[in-house]
Design a protein around this nucleic acid. Sequence first.
DNA 1: CGGTAAACGAGACGGTACGTCCCGTCTTCGT
DNA 2: ACGAAGACGGGACGTACCGTCTCGTTTACCG
Lengths: 197, 197, 197, 197
Amino acid sequence: MTTSGSDGHRRAHTGRRRNEEARQAILDAALRLLTTPHDGGLTVDVIAHEAGVGKQTIYRWWQSKGAVLLEALTDWSDSLVPVPDTGSLREDLCGYLADTFRRAGEPATAAVLRTLAAEAARDPGTADLFRQFTETRRDALHAIVRRGRERAELGPELDLELLVDQAYGLFWYRFLLGHGPLDQETAVRLTDALIRT
Amino acid sequence: MTTSGSDGHRRAHTGRRRNEEARQAILDAALRLLTTPHDGGLTVDVIAHEAGVGKQTIYRWWQSKGAVLLEALTDWSDSLVPVPDTGSLREDLCGYLADTFRRAGEPATAAVLRTLAAEAARDPGTADLFRQFTETRRDALHAIVRRGRERAELGPELDLELLVDQAYGLFWYRFLLGHGPLDQETAVRLTDALIRT
Amino acid sequence: MTTSGSDGHRRAHTGRRRNEEARQAILDAALRLLTTPHDGGLTVDVIAHEAGVGKQTIYRWWQSKGAVLLEALTDWSDSLVPVPDTGSLREDLCGYLADTFRRAGEPATAAVLRTLAAEAARDPGTADLFRQFTETRRDALHAIVRRGRERAELGPELDLELLVDQAYGLFWYRFLLGHGPLDQETAVRLTDALIRT
Amino acid sequence: MTTSGSDGHRRAHTGRRRNEEARQAILDAALRLLTTPHDGGLTVDVIAHEAGVGKQTIYRWWQSKGAVLLEALTDWSDSLVPVPDTGSLREDLCGYLADTFRRAGEPATAAVLRTLAAEAARDPGTADLFRQFTETRRDALHAIVRRGRERAELGPELDLELLVDQAYGLFWYRFLLGHGPLDQETAVRLTDALIRT
DNA sequence: CGGTAAACGAGACGGTACGTCCCGTCTTCGT
DNA sequence: ACGAAGACGGGACGTACCGTCTCGTTTACCG
């Protein structure tokens, strides 16, 4: 069996140094398995096999299955939702939220996020890594509102952390439970509710 | 071995109808094991044994371990955070949130909620039950703000669902990730942010 | 659900006296399940269901599953191989053996005997009942050779029990292991070997 | 917990190849449990634990519990009853039978054989293995009588297979049913009956 | 003739063992 | 030395039957 990834060529060993190709193959396989609605469980054996890699090669470099998944996801998310800077807080905020909601609506992305949350909730040692993942996103949002306040579009009395968490909290809450919409109109209304003065 | 629960009396069969005592014993055992910082894993065998019940009796009525835990928790949560009615929206809302935050800060409750989320995230068939659980809580909060609007303490243009989700979203978001406080001051600030006019 | 046997009519209760129809339905079902190459295991639930009977009705009258099977089989075997009496030992013996072998060659009968042996070997409490079953057969054969000796066709020094067990031992041994034939010629040769003088 | 066998040293892994030590530990444990009058049932968990082995390691190499037991027994039986060669058919035959009967009379051996027969009768896929087991024994007996015929101690008209099956058939028949003796005198009488001319 | 006792169909129950699944570790062998 | 491969110890899972128990119903027997 080969990598079963895109090309299928046999990876060469690289002697005693870490094989970067193997690392990448593992992360790719993990992401691929997160994305596709795989039938069976997302097991380590499956990741290893899909990556054309021995299980030990995974455990040599990551502490647990969750760690692999999260590294795969963090890499991936960085190229996802860019931080806008239009000069208007309302526009930046609304754009960012709308963008986030839209991405989460795409089936592939949704599957990834959902699996991510599931694995993080289960594995206690993975919680930290999940925290890191969400933190990068929160930071992005935080940058937007901070910029807005610097332009005096927000009163100084506002708790920005609270505001950010209201936004991201609502996002995850609705995303995971699915009881309410996450559409463009919601982005607008949420923006209004957050920066209403 | 008997029920190992409080009394230890032998449960009588109830013939061909479901044995309500057994059902209750299972849910009690599940909750007891969730609450107490048990040493080993929270396995089905342990639940069955703790309840003085055959494993099949669990699987006869619930689809999976998670389903049992969730039913146990749903029952339990209903008697947890009462819905206040002081006549003032701000007071009701702030009180409810403060109460919720405080309960979630207690180690026993925290453990329960965390396990709940983990099991729900994993088991696909359990998502519904988790939804029901959160819905009951959301309904409670919704009743509070709806009452407030009826008293004209909130403008009619406000999206109450959005407001509720901002609150509960922030709660779960911070609760699960633990990156921000869920103390009494947060309850106050959140109340302000939500009903600021 | 009805008896799922031949007719499918609903059996009427007979009040406080034993319901002979139920008894017969159970034995019939047991024999039917022994005979047909049933897919799943031959469980008590299946017998009860096939007989259109509650499980308790089985356990009320029989000690175990094996007991039911054996009673079914004993009833059935009595009408199987008659004991011949031609006046000639050789003819009686050879005829009886040939008959026995022939019946055991029929698929339906073979299935029954094989299942019987399997159940008896497993269930320790059933061993006695299996012994009874074989004893009735052994008695029949014993009667034949005893009659022969009374006619002085066998020397008085012969151990008749040993002789009978050589015959039935060979039968079961070959029947269960299937390594040697149990045909008519074998019946002849065995007869010769047993009463050779 | 370690092997709980004789020494108790920790077995080393053997990498990707089958671990012969583990195989042997399993067979040893199985035989030990068959031999000793163990209290509880002879379960797979107990075998695994006694062998210091994961259950999956058993199921990786054997199809069922019965298969393990039978392999254990086949290995063991080969070193059991030696084939005598005194130059006299009567003496060889009688000696071999007496030996066989005596061994079967020992409680440990009896337990093993009985369990063997029971498991073989139940598990259909195990029948073959049981056949092999009995065949090795039958071959031994067959060699004895063949040698006797070569020395003209038996007439050429005799069906040796039949003769062997009369002997082993009687043995198993009496052994399993227990209705007749399997003592030294029986060995003598059976010998007489088989090679009487 | 009405009350009681027993047998019935049904099926839930406590319990034991099964065979499967997956984790994370360990060791070999090829490169 | 590193990587592919996969066997290993361990432990939880969900299933299959066993034999027991109780229900509510139906019928025969007895007062």
